[in-house]
Amino acid sequence: MERWAGINHQNLNLLIGLAIGLNLLALSTSRLPMLIRSMSAQGVILGVMPILMEPHADWRVLLVALATIGGKGLFIPGMLRRAMRAVRIDRELEPLIGFVPSLLLGAGGTIAAFALTPLLPLLAEHADSLLVPGALATVITGLILLIGRTEAVAQVCGYIILDNGIYLFGLLLIRAMPLMVEAGVLLDLTVGVFILGIIVDRIQRTFDSLDTRILTTLHE
């Protein structure tokens, strides 16, 4: 049993490492399909994690895992791909923060997350886990994407990566809290993407572009 937990712990850290790698990939790519793909891969990885963390998986854990994989790994990316195809844009052209700087920022944020985590008051059982720094790094990545990109689809991706970070934080509480919280978040998100999809469509029809900077003309 101990051994099993140890291996799981290692696998978990490996998965978090992968998720961090996907963060950087998302920051460095200019192609929206690539961005969506890395986001969905991250969603799948995140979905696997609860199963690893709870060896005696009851149906609720399994349900959430499946819902995460299905929602973040398949459904939302599918929606985004459709939106992308509908507006016929497949790359970010004029980011506010260039790709190399945003990559460096993301890496710096990741390193800072790792450096700052020991300063946080964490439970002993979480001390050597990568969950907290991974979560922080993912949140930072999402924020950089949200700030630095002008394409609406890329911003949605940023938002979802941000949510992935929050989800990672949530995994810390997997024993203490009912997983319903996460389920609720997932639901929120799904609705959010629906709305965004509709808005994207409207923006496209009205302005012939998905450049969110144009929206500043709406202010009074």
Partner: peptide, 25 residues
Amino acid sequence: VPLLLTTAFLLCLFALLVAWKGGPA
């Protein structure tokens, strides 16, 4: 090209940090 070289730099940098901190696994 700079993007790819920056990636290489970051890979080496993270390898450095992993070596330093003992790293995961």
